[in-house]
């Protein structure tokens, strides 16, 4: 104050001062760290809020992951999408072999497997327990069967149905049987499950926004005096908004990380029982965890939710002490 106060130049307002990106970055970094420090200073309250956010996010994330695993598992069942061609009984094994070759060439089929009449009888005898009854038959009642695996990319229910129709029309084929119903039902169920995950994610995402909103609202109330005084001495709305937005940001980021931790922990707990079950089915299936990409996605979403909650809270309270 020892200096003469500068004469005001009337047209100039501080707002028109040149933008300084470095100072701007420094200020933001300071505010971000200060907001983080504020969370750390009341660890119990912060942990409770973060816990709610983490659990709310973990539920849809875990379900989504489960669904991905189920889909992966169903991918192992390629045999589901196969067509069994029951040939006319008059067709002998040699003719059937030729037919199988022809099918591979003409219909763009990935693989065929021929079960000759004798082989079919032997298998049936071994597995059905009717061996004695079969022995009394003078003739082999079973036809030769060609099992067709469609080329990859032709596995949609509609394409399978078309292929099955064409194969069934061949003169050598008596019946073409496609076990499609099961595939369709499975598809429908996973679709419902997928939709459920999205509905749940939306509802719980809203819960996260409300949680952050309420937390920030309380923080604003606690710092009411500071906000008022800052406004009195010329703080802009952006300046006042900033620490609260960063609080929301941190709630989002940390809540997202906590969610990831919870999901990983749940997977770890499920790992052994799943491996045992897979062993019983002689399958090498193992639960896969969250990919890096999914983690990034989760963090972005949770950050956005946190910011949204704090933005709404701040917006509602900012205008209160303005001159009207």
């Amino acid at each position: 104050m020892a200096r003469m106060a500068s004469q005001p130049s009337p047209a100039r307002l501080g707002r028109s001062r040149r933008f300084n990106p470095r100072g701007w970055m420094t200020r933001h970094l300071q505010v971000a760290l200060a907001s983080l420090g504020r969370l750390a200073r009341s660890p119990l309250a912060s942990m409770m809020t973060l816990g709610v956010i983490g659990i709310a996010l973990a539920l849809p994330s875990a379900l989504h992951l489960l669904l991905l695993n189920v889909e992966k598992m169903s991918g192992d069942w390629d045999s589901v999408a196969s067509i069994s061609l029951y040939l006319q009984k008059s067709i002998e094994t040699g003719q059937a072999e030729k037919l199988a070759k022809r099918l591979e060439e003409e219909f763009g089929i990935a693989e065929t497997q021929l079960i000759g009449r004798d082989q079919a009888l032997a298998e049936f005898r071994a597995m059905s327990g009717f061996s004695e009854a079969l022995g009394s038959l003078s003739d082999n009642p079973l036809p030769a069967v060609i099992i067709v695996r469609p080329a990859p990319g032709d596995e949609s229910p509609a394409a399978l149905e078309r292929l099955s129709g064409r194969l069934g029309a061949l003169p050598e084929v008596e019946i073409a049987q496609l076990d499609l119903q099961w595939v369709q039902r499975f598809h429908a169920i996973t679709q419902i499950a997928g939709r459920t995950v999205w509905v749940l994610a939306t509802l719980l995402g809203m819960a996260v926004v409300l949680t952050v909103f309420n937390t920030i609202r309380l923080e604003i109330q606690a710092r009411q005096q500071e906000i008022e005084i800052s406004k009195l001495i010329g703080a802009t709305d952006a300046f006042i908004r900033r620490p609260f937005l960063y609080s929301g940001f941190w709630y989002g980021v940390l809540g997202g990380l906590l969610c990831w931790l919870l999901v990983s922990l749940s997977l770890w707990l499920l790992h052994a029982p799943v491996a045992r079950l897979a062993g019983l089915y002689e399958s090498g299936f193992a639960l896969s965890g969250m990919s890096l990409y999914a983690l990034l996605w989760l963090l972005c979403a949770s950050t956005l939710l946190g910011l949204t909650g704090s933005w709404i809270a701040v917006g509602r309270h900012l205008r209160r002490i303005d001159p009207s």
Partner: peptide
């Protein structure tokens, strides 16, 4: 300070207060 306060916009108020 050479500024007509009756016409000052809301967003300019903080800069006046400074």
């Amino acid at each position: 300070n050479g500024r007509n306060l009756t016409r000052l916009q809301r967003r300019d108020i903080p800069y006046h207060r400074r």
